[in-house]
């Protein structure tokens, strides 16, 4: 239950793009076509799912005040938390490099589709943001950290997929010239973010005891809604392709 709650919370309520504006640079730069957006989104899910639990371990056993006590009593007073930025980013950069090598070795086809995006990901704020928020929200267990990483990744994926579909479609509408391209993308993203704010009530409200039963229903409903949305997006994309052809 805890996992499910965190999972949906990190996808919808604390959506990386719409609630905290992380990973906006690549979100804006790589969202011109649905296919490339899907590639980058998949890579982000993958890297977040790996780096967040890794950094959780680092945080628990090296960085937190008193975390070094497993080395012996005399280390118990060390507080290395000021090093977290440098350790987190080093983990992320190394992991991205490692993932790149492994994927290239074992799945050349996946490598070709993700290829150019993997190195980009090291400097995607969403990845470092995932680890930093994991730290500041004090996520309790390794399993929850993994759930959080995967959930945030999926949230980012959904966001970039949606905006890419919209941008493919928006080319055929008559926008004021100065607003074309970047301007309208900003405003559309703003409107989508307002839409996503309505998910805010999803996991709050109700008493502790009563909360569980209705919540699952709500979650399922939302799931279906999103599926429907995705279907719509896909249809939109297909329509667009047909029009182009």
């Amino acid at each position: 239950m805890e996992h499910l709650e965190l999972f949906f919370k990190s996808i919808f309520i604390d959506n990386m793009v719409f609630a905290t504006f992380l990973g906006m640079c690549s979100y804006l730069a790589v969202s011109k076509k649905v296919t490339t957006a899907v590639g980058l989104g998949a890579a982000v899910i993958f890297v977040l799912a790996v780096t967040v639990p890794l950094n959780w371990l680092l945080d628990q056993y090296i960085l937190q005040p008193g975390a070094l006590s497993w080395l012996g009593a005399e280390y118990a007073e060390y507080d290395l938390s000021f090093l977290s930025f440098i350790l987190f980013i080093a983990t992320i950069a190394t992991m991205v490099q490692l993932v790149e090598i492994i994927v290239e070795k074992f799945s050349p086809s996946l490598y070709n589709s993700l290829g150019i995006f993997l190195p980009l990901i090291a400097v995607n704020c969403a990845i470092l943001g995932g680890s930093l928020f994991m730290q500041s929200r004090e996520i309790a267990t390794l399993g929850l950290a993994t759930t959080y990483g995967i959930g945030s990744g999926i949230g980012w994926f959904l966001a970039i997929l949606a905006i890419a579909a919209i941008r493919e479609k928006i080319r055929y509408s008559n926008i004021p010239a100065p607003l074309r391209g970047l301007g309208i993308t900003f405003i559309v993203t703003g409107l989508m973010a307002i839409g996503f704010m309505s998910f805010g009530g999803m996991l709050t409200g109700g008493d502790e005891e009563e909360k569980d039963a209705p919540k699952t229903e709500a979650v399922i409903e939302v799931k279906e809604e999103v599926k429907a949305k995705e279907m719509n997006n896909k249809e939109l994309a297909n329509n667009t392709k047909e029009i182009i052809e």
């Binding site: 719409f18 609630a19 905290t20 504006f21 004021p176 010239a177 100065p178 607003l179 970047l182 301007g183 309208i184 900003f186 405003i187 993203t189 703003g190 409107l191 973010a193 307002i194 704010m197």
Partner: peptide
């Protein structure tokens, strides 16, 4: 004060800047 408005404000800044410099 809500986060989405930042996006829209930046969008408007871009609009103004680009209408001044075609």
């Amino acid at each position: 004060l809500l986060a989405p408005m930042a996006l829209i404000v930046v969008g408007i800044i871009i609009w103004i800047q680009r209408s001044r410099n075609e």
